[in-house]
Write a protein that binds this DNA or RNA. Structure first.
Lengths: 230, 230
DNA sequence: TAGATTGTTAATCGATTAACAATC
DNA sequence: TAGATTGTTAATCGATTAACAATC
């Protein structure tokens, strides 16, 4: 199977998840005026092994030159294309609490490939209020946003207890990609993709390893004590 | 090997990453007054398969009852213990921009298992300013925080270009667990654990699938065109 | 006991890694 | 050509899944 066909078929999820990191590293190199890079160098910049990088890139096609490396601009373009970032995706943020406001102000959103076209909130008391240079809109605007502005991605920044309701409304309006910041599992149809960002989950994973670290001192003593009866 | 020993040895990373989700689902059930749950029900609540749930829990020990299920409170306690959440971990947030302020106000941080003991910023112009009911402190306070307050986890909420510098200072002060919100790779010693939360990475992954979805209409036509020569 | 559900096994699947032939 | 580095192969590793014996 040619690389071209591989690119059209499925790129492994694990590879897709690393492409943004490569793109970021390449953008960084370009800003520093570097025009060519080896897999070894790019892998180091992205924090992965060079074998993994080359394997990942091989799913996109063959854009390197043996003995030389990759042209930074070219590879960045190819990854952007693969990720679908050559067009701007309209994004709406729902929930104008602390987090929602921070996300609305976050420049990373508005840069490459995304365009925050609306801020919404369920609470009528907040609707109409200004947030940055935008005005908070009611949930009822969702249908029009999907229809008229091709809204594709919904960001949920509400508390957990209203997240499912917001998700239902997004799906009903026709949004099929959701980024969920609320600490809860969303129930959506199979054709809707949800990705979750959860800070407390990440902290808990850190706590696990931190505890393991401090607990290690005791292991030598407890390891041969034998099993503890239930 | 007994389950007890398995728990003391390594729990697979993939399992550890799912434990917070189980804990969340269990907390939810407890709040709704449900005291017993089967693997099938809990798995549905956490959004995983029941086989995966049972396999994950088996790494912790044997806390279910065959033919009955799991006691909600007991299992929540065991997972909390495994994750190291029976103690409070002191956390410092570095970077008091939009995101840092939102994180400082985020209640999810202050609840179960974590305690935000300090907000810091590199910028002397911000140091001393109030954020919520706290005062922004200078980076120089890090050593004292680690020494006197057992600071264990550092949250980096700075722009990408100062994140590495902040990470260096955290490591120098003795912090070995870092949650990085800046969109960049951090270079740290092997014994320091970094987890990354990156919203634009998540958006880009959504864009990939969104693009694939809309591109699917063309696949029937292009699939049998044959290979495109490089 | 009969029914239900866990904990574990073994098979499958997908991802990672090392090594190297291809080739610039 | 000689040196360097890609793209790919094959081996290894770890994670997922289905099935079921153990047992409440």
């Amino acid at each position: 199977m040619s690389a071209d066909v591989a690119a059209r078929r499925g790129i492994p999820d694990a590879s897709v998840a690393r492409l943004p990191g490569y793109l970021q590293a390449l953008t960084n190199l370009a800003e520093r005026g570097i025009s060519s890079v080896s897999s070894e160098e790019l892998a180091a910049a992205a924090g992965v092994s060079s074998a993994k990088l080359r394997k990942d890139l091989s799913h996109l096609g063959s854009y390197g030159v043996r003995g030389v490396g990759y042209e930074v601009d070219r590879l960045a373009y190819e990854i952007s294309t693969a990720l679908g970032l050559t067009q701007d995706w309209p994004v709406a943020i729902v929930g104008m609490g602390n987090l929602g406001r921070a996300l609305a102000a976050y420049s990373g959103f508005t840069t490459r490939g995304f365009n925050v076209i609306a801020l919404l909130d369920r609470d009528e008391a907040i609707v109409g209020a200004p947030v940055g240079d935008r005005t908070v809109r009611p949930m009822g605007d969702l249908d029009a946003l999907v229809r008229d502005d091709r809204l594709a991605i919904g960001v949920i920044a509400t508390p957990a207890d209203s997240a499912q309701d917001v998700a239902d409304r997004l799906v009903e309006a026709g949004v099929r990609s959701i980024l969920n910041f609320a600490p809860c599992v969303l129930d959506v149809p199979d054709d809707v993709m949800v990705r979750k960002v959860d800070m407390s989950t990440e902290l808990q994973i850190l706590a696990f390893h931190e505890q393991r670290r401090t607990g290690e001192l005791d292991l030598g003593r407890t390891a041969d004590v034998g099993e503890v009866a239930l």
